[in-house]
């Protein structure tokens, strides 16, 4: 975290593109607005955390942002291991595990395929390459409702309906559209002369990729991994459509826990469950968010 602060403030000092509002009033205004907005943006997370550490009695007595007098992890423990979701009562932990079982292979496979595809699109010209790339790109933007019905049928035919491998397959298929775009946009910024030099030096298709391209690709690899990890982890539509019972990912379980419970709402448990479901992606952003931004600014978003 300290390193992150240092590097970003160093970047701020000698970065172009900014205009200084010289007046003192301007600085006060800027910091005032930023601080206020930052509070508004942080409040929901803070409230979620505080609420998850309270008992229901304390929630009723206090308010959204009041501090818990006796912080307790009881709600966390309960939703992690004991709450009833649907007909089973084992808490979120199984679903949390499911999400990992889905996310890790889906991310790895889609990033790897995207890297290969992006390499081909960026540096090996062939007839209609731009059109084909455009067709893949369009796949990033389709509303997934359009594929739900036939995909359910396909997974059924493959014997993968309701299973975790089925979900992995779905996420890989629709993930490669994004990863291909990321890598292609990054790789076209690599000077063509480098590829020519490699060909003259006798490097083939894979040698160029693994020896020359991959070692300089970590920014876009980070972007793709973060994008895919968060995208797959946070998915709800595919999970609720294609996963059955105990194979569901944590987002679906969270929704079931929160929105199908009967009786009075246990907000502390809702918040604890939401925290659990959100933690992996929040941690990834805290740890690697600056790579994500940097990579995104460098390559993925050019226009």
């Amino acid at each position: 975290m300290t390193a992150m602060l240092e590097s970003s403030s160093a970047a701020a000092a000698n970065r172009p593109g900014s205009i200084r509002w010289s007046k003192q009033f301007g600085r006060v205004f800027v910091y005032g607005c930023l601080a206020l907005l930052a509070l508004v943006f942080l409040a929901p997370l803070l409230s979620m955390l505080l609420t998850s550490l309270k008992s229901m009695d304390e929630i009723r007595a206090g308010n959204l942002l009041s501090l818990p007098s006796t912080p307790t992890f009881a709600a966390w423990a309960n939703v992690w291991g004991a709450s009833c979701i649907g007909v089973t009562c084992g808490g979120l932990k199984g679903y949390f595990g499911n999400s990992f079982l889905i996310v890790v292979p889906a991310t790895f496979i889609s990033v790897a395929l995207g890297a290969f595809n992006g390499y081909v699109f960026a540096q090996w010209r062939f007839r209609g390459d731009n059109l084909i790339f455009g067709l893949i790109l369009f796949g990033c933007f389709i509303p997934f409702q359009i594929v739900l019905i036939p995909m359910a049928g396909l997974l059924g035919k493959l014997g993968l309906a309701g299973t975790i491998p089925g979900l992995i397959l779905v996420h890989v298929v629709y993930g490669i559209c994004f990863t291909t775009m990321f890598f292609r946009n990054y790789f076209i910024t690599v000077p063509a002369e480098i590829f020519k030099a490699a060909r003259v030096d006798g490097a083939g298709f894979w040698a160029i990729f693994f020896r020359i391209l991959l070692p300089i690709s970590w920014p876009i690899v980070m972007v793709s991994i973060i994008w895919q990890f968060t995208g797959v982890w946070n998915d709800f539509l595919f999970g609720v459509s294609f996963a059955a019972g105990t194979n569901q990912p944590v987002t679906v379980a969270l929704n079931n826990l929160v929105n199908t419970s009967t009786g009075t709402k246990a907000y502390n448990e809702d918040m604890a469950a939401a925290m659990i479901a959100a933690l992996p992606t929040i941690l990834i952003y805290v740890a690697a968010g600056r790579y994500f931004l940097r990579g995104l600014m460098a390559g993925a978003v050019k226009g």
């Binding site: 992150m4 602060l5 590097s7 970003s8 403030s9 970047a11 701020a12 000092a13 970065r15 593109g17 900014s18 205009i19 200084r20 509002w21 301007g26 600085r27 800027v30 910091y31 930023l34 907005l37 930052a38 943006f41 942080l42 929901p44 997370l45 409230s47 979620m48 968060t230 982890w233 946070n234 998915d235 709800f236 987002t251 679906v252 969270l254 929704n255 929160v258 809702d270 918040m271 469950a273 939401a274 479901a277 959100a278 992606t281 929040i282 990834i284 952003y285 805290v286 968010g289 600056r290 931004l293």
Partner: peptide, 29 residues
């Protein structure tokens, strides 16, 4: 944020973190 501010990285992270959350979590919050 583009006004050459201090702690730019922190502010960026604060505004960006909701994007790390799933819509379900956002909805629940």
């Amino acid at each position: 944020i583009d006004q050459k501010i201090r702690l730019e990285g922190v502010f960026r992270a604060v505004f960006l973190y909701p994007m790390a959350l799933s819509f379900v979590v956002t909805g629940v919050i």
